[in-house]
Design a protein around this nucleic acid. Structure first.
Length: 184
DNA sequence: ACGAGGATGCTCT
DNA sequence: GAGCATCCTCGTC
């Protein structure tokens, strides 16, 4: 088992923290883009009222019940797409929401996809749009593409925990993690 | 800088 | 019919 697989099959909170600083790469529409993950949130399963998996499997969240390393993409507010990394044992349905990243490659394509020069990857909807990710990639494996989590040394920095954003239930759990990279 | 409001589609009650 | 794991634009201060 690789270090990444071991990370993803552990607890979702530890997995969330461990994903910070790792690289996420997409090769979609003939375009390659890559970011460093800088903000994530942990979502549990039946034990977490804020999680999409709380009510059991359904049409939208089916991929959340797949194996660790599955990409779970859902539509938010009818408008945006949001990406999650499925973690834990198969069927446990915990996942890490990818909220923000820092562009490493393909930044020009991100600007084109976003239709603007700023705010490329800060926010779950923006990050997915910048990387070209939509519902088409829901259920794919982050080990096989077209969206990959890349192994290798994580970028160092200070990790700050806080409450999850935009939820009403279990809002007190400090399961949002941000990575403050050196120099900003 | 900051807050209000609208867009828009799917899931669940 | 309500409620979203959001983002953008346009008012004010």
């Amino acid at each position: 088992m690789t270090g990444l697989a071991a990370l993803l099959t552990g607890g979702v909170v530890a997995a969330a923290r461990g994903l910070l600083g790792l690289r996420l790469r997409s090769e979609i529409g003939g375009v390659a883009c890559e970011v460093i993950l800088t903000e994530v949130e942990a979502y549990g399963g039946a034990d977490d009222p804020a999680s999409h998996a709380f009510g059991g499997p359904g049409n939208r969240n089916a991929s959340m019940f797949g194996p660790a390393g599955t990409l779970y993409v859902y539509r938010s507010y009818g408008v945006h797409w949001c990406m999650n990394v499925v973690t834990g044992a198969r069927g446990r349905a915990s996942a890490v929401l990818l909220r923000a990243g820092r562009p490493l490659a393909g930044e020009e394509h991100m600007r084109h996809r976003r239709g603007r020069a700023d705010c490329l990857c800060n926010g779950p909807g923006r990050l997915a749009q910048a990387l070209g990710v939509s519902g088409e990639q829901d259920g794919t494996s982050l080990f096989d593409g077209p969206v990959w989590l890349l192994t290798g040394p994580a970028a160092g920095g200070q990790v700050v925990a806080g409450p999850r954003v935009g939820i009403t239930r279990a809002a007190d759990r400090p399961w949002r993690f941000r990575l403050i990279l050196p120099g900003g």
